[in-house]
């Protein structure tokens, strides 16, 4: 488990696969609904001008997550 990384560690242009959506409740439900399920490919595009939130590309559309939310998503190392 020492290789467990989270989505907020991706640098612009890097791509990863989702391993698991942590968190619970409304946030997890929303992340799952938006397509962040196991195996989904996700690319980090850029950070907002003030550093947060972060823009990703997933399933062909653009999604923005706050850094704290991206930290809830484990990605394949």
């Amino acid at each position: 488990m020492n290789t467990s990384r989270t989505l907020d560690h991706l640098m612009p242009g890097q791509t990863a696969r989702v391993r698991r959506v942590g968190s619970a409740g409304a946030l997890r439900r929303r992340l799952l609904d938006m397509g962040l399920v196991r195996g989904a490919e996700i690319e980090m595009l850029k950070r907002a001008p003030l550093g947060d939130p972060i823009e990703y590309r997933v399933r062909g559309y653009h999604l923005s997550l706050r850094q704290a939310e991206a930290r809830m998503i484990e990605i394949e190392a």
Binding site: A26, L27, R30, L31, M34, P53, E55, Y61, H62, L63, S64, L65, R66, A68, E69
Partner: peptide, 11 residues
Amino acid sequence: PPHPFVMELPP
């Protein structure tokens, strides 16, 4: 706790 942000950026 803060509420989820999670927002689409439409084309």
